[in-house]
């Protein structure tokens, strides 16, 4: 594997981390497997694309997409999921129904063509990394992935909200009994997780492009990462993203047509030996 491919794998892993961290946060704390997460990613990407092309600002695109997708997450959580609280399977299937509607709506609004989010001038071109010419933008994605990892780590380990989230992952009822409004913590987490999906959509939309089935593809990767890394563990998402990102890139180099199959291997191995994932806690 050349350095170029290694960097490709790492940057892809960074994008996956941004998307999957939101997914696993929601899964870990709220016990909601939000299968609309992929659709939120796609919507975020499209919204970011529209803002970035209309206003000519990539930053505004990212911020706008995050805000818009957080609002969508709010509507999903407060408008629909509240009716099925406490029923795990019904929640999952409901979010799947929502994913179908969102995917179809994006087709109505933006059509079936594929779009690429325009990147700002400063990020165009490339660097020479150890003799390999590499696009700046992808290194920016890698950097963002690392920054978000650090940001989330600080949030979860060093802040009050983070302490509540951790406590909620372990035992939400006890937290509530301690006089904390756990529903607010749930909502914050849901908004944060959704915003991360929106952000991922814009970031990914600039180098993977956006098309109608992009949401399912990113969702499968997120699922694989959660299965590998375990529920509600930040380190787990990090390791899972690295594994899936690197393996997928390797697979594309070695047998391009079956690249998808490569993520199946680690998933199978981990399920065989650690069904709760590498860093997951037994429920």
């Amino acid at each position: 594997m050349s350095l170029f491919q290694l960097l490709n794998g790492l940057t892809f892993a960074a994008l996956l981390f941004v998307v999957a961290s939101g997914f696993t946060l929601i899964f870990g704390l709220l016990r909601i497997v939000n299968l609309a997460h992929g659709a939120l990613y796609l919507f975020g990407g499209y919204i970011g694309f529209t803002i970035a092309t209309k206003l000519g600002s990539f930053t505004l695109g990212i911020l706008g997409a995050m805000a818009a997708v957080a609002v969508m997450g709010f509507a999903l959580n407060e408008g629909l999921l509240r009716f099925v609280r406490g029923f795990e399977l019904r929640q999952v299937l409901l979010s799947l129904g929502v994913a179908f509607v969102l995917n179809d709506m994006s087709l109505v609004i933006w059509g079936g063509d594929s779009f690429t989010v325009p990147i700002p001038e400063e990020l165009m071109g490339g660097f020479r990394v150890f003799g390999t010419f590499y696009p700046k933008y992808r290194l920016f994605v890698l950097l963002m992935g690392i920054l978000i990892f650090i940001g989330l780590w600080v949030l979860i380990n060093k802040t009050r909200l983070g302490a509540l989230i951790r406590a909620g992952v372990d035992d939400a009822e006890m937290v509530e009994a301690a006089g904390i409004n756990i529903q607010r913590v749930f909502l914050m987490t849901f908004l944060l997780g959704s915003a991360l999906a929106g952000m991922g959509g814009v970031m990914g939309g600039a180098f993977l492009s956006l098309y109608p089935s992009a949401d399912s593809e990113i969702l499968v990767f997120s699922l694989a990462i959660v299965i590998i890394g375990g529920r509600g563990s930040l380190i787990g998402v990090g390791v899972g993203s690295l594994m899936v990102g690197l393996l997928n890139t390797m697979g594309q180099v070695m047998f391009p047509e079956l690249a998808y199959f490569v993520i199946f291997g680690p998933m199978a191995a981990i399920l065989a030996f650690r069904p709760m994932g590498l860093f997951g806690k037994a429920v």
């Binding site: 629909l80 129904g97 179908f100 509607v101 969102l102 995917n103 179809d104 109505v108």
Partner: peptide, 16 residues
């Protein structure tokens, strides 16, 4: 042509 939306809405309503 919006079968997918109808399917999604049906699914959501049935779940609720």
């Amino acid at each position: 042509e919006r079968w997918q939306s109808v399917l999604g809405i049906t699914f959501t309503l049935i779940m609720i």
